[in-house]
Design a binder for these strands. Structure first.
Length: 865
RNA sequence: GGGGAGAUGGCGGAACUGGCAGACGCAUCGGACUUAAAAUCCGAAGCCCUCACGGGCGUCCGGGUUCGAUCCCCGGUCUCCCCA
């Protein structure tokens, strides 16, 4: 039976197959046959997913649909569009799953990828599938290793002992995010910080460039400032304080406020500080050692949290203020060990100025230490005189060489003095630390490094890449904390091809971030076997024009990728300084959840609706509707498969965008979905007589002759208003307003039955197509077009149809709406005022007009007495 | 704790540059078509007073600037996100 009804499933299957078989979204590279260099390029990229076992829920595709809409419109505007997708396939969950089930992570990952691919295709996303990639594929990670070797050759990769989280129970090193309050996230076992030999990347060498070049990109200010704070550049000075007694090395501190040196009444060193044991007196040794042990169990966050109590122990040692006479009793400064000082920041020691630093102030109060005012706050600002600590800029006092100087001058003077006496110098430090780059795991990129018998380390030659992961079936961590790869001895024991001598392979692997640092570059030339990507491809595609993803990657992923990009820039293989020109963060998709009277969230499947109220199925307790993240435990996760099955993929796409601006968080409401389906039904019926057999309605078969008038003219105006709003929606990605505009136009079409012209119908289909591509393709083809709507031209706005002859003038009296009247579009102020006076004559009765404010095109406001 | 974003009908949201608050959709109610239902179409609807005409109130709360404030300024409350 052939039906003329709207059948999304049939249409969507048909066009998805057609797109696939014609490679409709395949993008040519320079040098490919058919490549048109005259078209502008546009590279629009999604942050690729980690293919988890759960598959996609309706939140994931939100950004993908947004970027797809942009990609489709850019194609219609005549751009060469690069719009690829891949998988960030290495990572911990697959390995944990392997430990539990024995299933190889490669197998799990391949299955998950298959699910993701199926789901992504089902959504009708216009990716160039020929460019699909997986970071766990040796043909990809060969080049991840290749880039690592460039870093290694440049001295940007090194091994060193750093404190890392170690869990004795699990016999493994854990990442920061796997440790919560000093206990393992899995199993809740105690963890401690332990120094272990790790690979580090010298990202700090790029700190200034990573900071400066933020000015070149169009990113949300919030993300830029997060990166700036993460890098945390601060200018100040390093000062060497001689130690009283037998210790020869001075205690070097970093401070951003050298001008407050005369206010330093005590010093603090980190528990990890190398001089600590030398500083510690015999009497204090036991207390200090105990303190150091306790500190090892805390995270940096716990240690530095401003809300937490500051703690410390006197070491028994004293330092001397280098700018004071050593015989002056005030020059003698007691030294404490305190864990709010971090070994990894600055020099691991501070001069504490309790008068002008909140943390030092708190510490001094707790341990009853001297507080001296050395900066007088500006007039009106409370300071020490009022019993509060002042940390801003002011005027130096009680500081002989700089008394009376404003803070900036005082700082410069002190730095000069320190330098003169050889006890200090200006110094810039960063919060950013080198990147801990190794993991004692199996499912990651092996390091292309060989350890020789004599202790030397060499990198694997380019021609021997990739270093592939050996097949293994046991991924549990070893007793001694070494990586699982250490047990693949056939693989570990190898020969250095240069010297022919025996060598051991590095058994750590790279972290999950590695593969995602450069995937946007591989997409430009994904099958290149001789290079990571060709120079021609990189030259043409440049950087990513629009990068869409979640704000959770604001710091780490984006900073790491920028770092690698800059290294590649120095290496001469990329020509752009920054990888992502414009960044856009989509909002989070939430769902409704229900709270009982105790505030507990009740799983969605234990709830029912009774007369507009939400109640618990058993017991009938009334519940409050709130908004929460989609989560397995609340059973409020919505799967796209079900939605698409029931309503079709075009409806799904439309609803995802219609919910609200792409950047906002918003709740998924299954009740709203049918509204979008109804809109598509309406569109279909405007084009197709569902009871007939014709492809399209008769009035759409050929162009209407002559000038537009009546309903056709009204529709032309309506269409152009809609088009204007659609075009505008691409500025801020608030596609909800674009869809609302299309709906308004369709409502107008419904009011003017039969008046829709072929030209209007065609342009409408074009504008609809980025949002609901399948139904648009079907209607486009029914209108008799051979080529797909994918490459049809985007309609041009015709401004002459935006102006009406008259408009509704608002008449206000003292700012309150009192009347409306039709006004000619070019009436002058006097005419408008006269018109308004007449329209509001009744309300103006008995009042004196003091003033009339006339805003042509909008309103007249009478101020009366 | 720090940083950021936000708060508009029963719900999601709209509102150009300070100028008609509530577009569009959902849910609701009424009507048409139907033997009936579904689907579809038409209509109503922020809240309060009023039979109605009409009026009052209204964009988290309290102030301010302005002829006029959802929008700008000051103070506060709450929510969400990120650092984690």
């Amino acid at each position: 039976m052939t039906s003329n009804a709207y059948d999304p499933r049939a249409i969507e299957t048909k066009w998805q197959e057609r797109w696939e078989s014609t490679r409709a979204f395949h993008t040519q590279n320079p040098g490919d046959p058919g490549f048109d260099a005259s078209k502008p390029k546009y590279y629009v990229l999604d942050m690729f997913p980690y293919p988890s076992g759960a598959g996609l829920h309706v939140g994931h595709p939100m950004g993908y649909i947004g970027s797809d809409i942009v990609a489709r419109k850019k194609r219609m505007e005549g751009c060469n569009v690069l719009h690829p997708m891949g998988y960030d396939a290495f990572g911990l969950p697959a390995e944990q799953y392997a430990i539990q089930t024995g299933k190889h992570p490669g197998e799990t990952t391949a299955e998950n990828i298959a699910t993701y691919r199926r789901q992504l295709k089902m959504i009708g996303l216009s990716y160039d599938w020929d460019r699909e990639l997986s970071t766990a594929d040796p043909s990809y990670y060969k080049w991840t290793q290749w880039i690592f070797t460039r870093l290694y050759d440049r001295g940007l990769a090194y091994q060193t002992e750093v404190p890392v989280w170690w869990c004795e129970e699990l016999k493994t090193v854990l990442a920061n995010e796997e440790v919560i309050n000093g206990r393992s996230e899995r199993g809740d076992h105690p963890c401690e910080r332990r120094p272990l030999k790790q690979w580090m990347l010298r990202i700090t060498a790029y700190a200034d460039r990573l900071l400066e070049d933020l000015d070149e990109v169009q990113w949300p200010e919030s993300v830029k400032s997060m990166q700036r704070e993460w890098i945390g550049r601060s200018e100040g000075a390093e000062i060497a304080f001689p130690i009283q007694g037998p210790v020869v090395d001075p205690l070097v501190v970093f401070t951003t406020r050298p001008d407050t040196i005369f206010g330093a009444t005590f010093m603090c060193v980190a528990p990890e500080h190398p001089l600590l044991s030398k500083l510690t007196s015999v009497e204090q040794r036991a207390a200090v050692e105990e303190y150091v042990k306790a500190a090892a169990l805390k995270s940096d966050l716990e240690r530095t949290d401003l809300a937490k109590d500051k703690s410390g122990v006197f070491t028994g040692g004293y330092a001397l203020n280098p700018l004071m006479d050593s015989s002056d009793p005030k020059a003698r400064i007691p030294i404490f060990v305190a864990d709010y000082v971090l070994g990894s920041y600055g020099t691991g020691a501070i001069m504490a100025v309790p008068g002008h630093d909140e943390r030092d102030f708190e510490f001094a109060q707790k341990y009853d230490l001297d507080v001296v005012e050395v900066v007088k706050p500006p007039q009106g600002t409370p300071g020490l005189a009022d019993g509060v600590c002042f940390s801003g800029k002011g005027t130096a006092v009680h500081s002989p060489p700089i008394d009376g100087l404003p803070t900036d001058d005082a700082t410069a003077r002190i730095v000069a003095l320190l330098q003169e006496r050889g006890v200090g110098a200006a110094k810039t430090t960063y919060r950013l630390r080198d990147w801990l780059f190794s993991r004692q795991r199996y499912w990651g990129e092996p390091f292309p490094i060989l350890h020789l018998e004599n202790g030397d380390r060499v990198r694997v030659r380019d021609e021997d890449l990739p270093v592939e992961l050996p097949p293994m079936d046991d991924f549990t961590p070893s007793e001694d904390g070494s990586a699982p790869l250490n047990r693949a001895q056939d693989w570990v024991q190898t020969t250095d091809p240069v010297t022919g001598k025996p060598a051991l392979r590095e058994t750590d692997t790279m972290p999950g971030w590695a593969g995602s640092c450069w995937y946007y570059l591989r997409f430009m030339d994904p099958h290149n076997a001789g290079a990571a990507f060709s120079q021609d491809a990189e030259q043409y595609w440049g950087n990513v024009d629009l990068y869409i993803g979640g704000v959770e990657h604001a710091v780490l992923h984006l900073l790491y990728a920028r770092f690698w990009h800059k290294v590649l820039y120095d290496e001469g293989v990329v020509k752009t300084k920054e990888p992502f020109q414009k960044l856009f963060n989509q909002g989070m998709l939430t769902a409704f959840a229900y709270k009982d009277s105790t505030g507990r969230l009740v799983p969605a499947n234990e709830i029912e609706e009774r007369g507009g109220k939400y109640v618990k199925r058993d017991g009938g307790e009334e519940l409050e509707q709130v908004i929460a993240k989609m989560s397995k435990s609340l059973r409020n996760v919505v799967n796209p498969d079900q939605v698409i099955e029931e309503y079709g993929c075009d409806t799904f796409r439309l609803y995802e965008m219609f919910m609200g601006p792409l950047s906002d968080s918003k709740p998924w409401n299954p009740r709203d979905v049918p509204g979008c389906r109804r809109f598509l039904d309406k569109v279909w019926r405007a084009f197709v007589d569902v009871d007939g057999t014709e492809a399209v309605r008769p009035n759409l078969r050929q162009d209407a002759a002559g000038e537009l008038q009546g309903d056709a003219l009204a529709l032309e105006r309506s269409f152009n208003r809609a088009l204007q709003r659609v075009d505008a929606s691409f500025e801020h990605f608030n596609f909800n307003t674009a869809i609302a505009a299309l709906m308004t136009f369709m409502n107008d079409v419904g009011k003017c039955a039969g008046a829709l012209t072929r030209s209007q119908a065609e342009r409408f289909v074009c504008v609809l197509s980025p949002f609901a591509p399948h139904v648009a393709e079907e209607l486009w083809s029914r209108l008799g077009h051979e080529g797909g709507v994918t490459h049809a031209a985007w309609p041009k706005l015709r401004e002459e149809f935006l102006v009406e002859d008259t408009y509704e003038l608002i008449v206000q009296i003292k700012g309150k709406l009192r009347a409306r009247v039709q006004a000619p579009k070019d009436a002058d102020n006097a005419a408008l005022e006269a018109l308004a006076k007449e329209a509001a004559a009744a309300q103006l009765e008995g009042q004196t007009i003091v003033k009339a404010i006339v805003v042509p095109g909008r309103l007249v406001n009478f101020v009366t007495r």
